[in-house]
């Protein structure tokens, strides 16, 4: 057990009153620079895992530590400080649609900007410069003052990525970033996430329902089945037997879960 781990999850159990246990004792560690794809059927607990790392759902037992700092026992102030260090990218981008692109990106700085300043839109000049730089990196230059409800799905997701990155996170938690996108846009968004992670040495956990995308962009894959990790390894070890274990008997047909790499559309 090295201390280089960015995130270490130990024997994590999460239950909802209505559905019983969703995660039944998960353990894994994430090194700096590591991009992990999380795959599994709907209801396997992928989103719950990401949300419990942020403590948007409270774990029932087990431990989660961020660079050695235990998260499960933090009080509200320390928890907010810890959340600032983890950027989250959401399934349906979760932008405030009536606010502008710039305001949405700067929402990522609310954790370090005082409420009184933020409400008067007095954002730190450095943060504004950062936001412009990130929007440029996302290919959204010139859209700063557009309202988010005028953007396309792919553009919204880029704003969501910029909002997560402006936190200067040590870890990205990415929840089905391509769920509402067409295949070509999905590949572009995944490439972008992979690139920015590589550029800034970020670790990331990415929930994906598309095994093809996971194979292509994630050097390490965790397979979740009914709240347990049933696979942890590189994409080349992800054979039909493993996929059957993760998704169940019905999904062995390669095209159903995209187990072949060439199922993923190429974008040049």
């Amino acid at each position: 057990m090295s201390d280089a781990a960015v995130l270490r999850v130990d024997d994590l159990v999460v239950g909802y009153a209505s559905e019983g246990e969703v995660l039944r004792g998960l353990s894994f560690a994430l090194e700096a620079n590591e991009i992990v794809g999380l795959i599994g059927a709907s209801g396997a607990g992928k989103s719950t895992l990401l949300r419990s790392v942020q403590r948007l759902v409270e774990p029932s037992s087990g431990s989660i530590s961020l660079r050695g700092e235990e998260l499960t026992t933090l009080g509200s102030t320390e928890l907010r400080a810890a959340r600032r260090r983890m950027g989250m990218i959401f399934q349906e981008h979760a932008l405030v649609e009536r606010l502008t692109v710039m305001e949405n990106v700067l929402c990522g700085t609310l954790g370090r900007t005082g409420s009184w300043r933020a409400i008067r839109r007095r954002f730190d000049a450095e943060d504004v410069v950062d936001a412009f730089r990130l929007l440029d990196r996302m290919g959204l230059s010139g859209l700063e003052d557009r309202r988010c409800d005028e953007l396309s799905g792919g553009q919204k997701q880029r704003v969501g990525i910029a909002r997560a990155l402006i936190q200067n996170p040590e870890l990205l938690l990415v929840d089905e970033p391509t769920a509402s996108l067409d295949p070509a846009a999905s590949v572009r968004i995944m490439s972008l996430i992979a690139e920015v992670c590589a550029e800034s040495g970020l670790a990331a956990i990415i929930n994906l329902h598309d095994v093809g995308l996971a194979r292509r962009f994630c050097p390490r894959i965790l397979g979740l089945h009914e709240g347990r990790i049933v696979f942890d390894g590189p994409p080349r070890d992800l054979d039909d037997a493993v996929l059957t274990e993760i998704y169940g008997e019905e999904a062995v047909e390669p095209h159903v879960v995209g187990s072949r790499q060439d199922d993923v559309p190429r974008v040049d």
Partner: peptide
């Protein structure tokens, strides 16, 4: 969802 995103970014209540 947007409110949850702000929570996840560590925003204080008034913000």
């Amino acid at each position: 969802a947007p409110l949850e995103a702000l929570t996840a970014a560590g925003s204080p209540g008034p913000s």
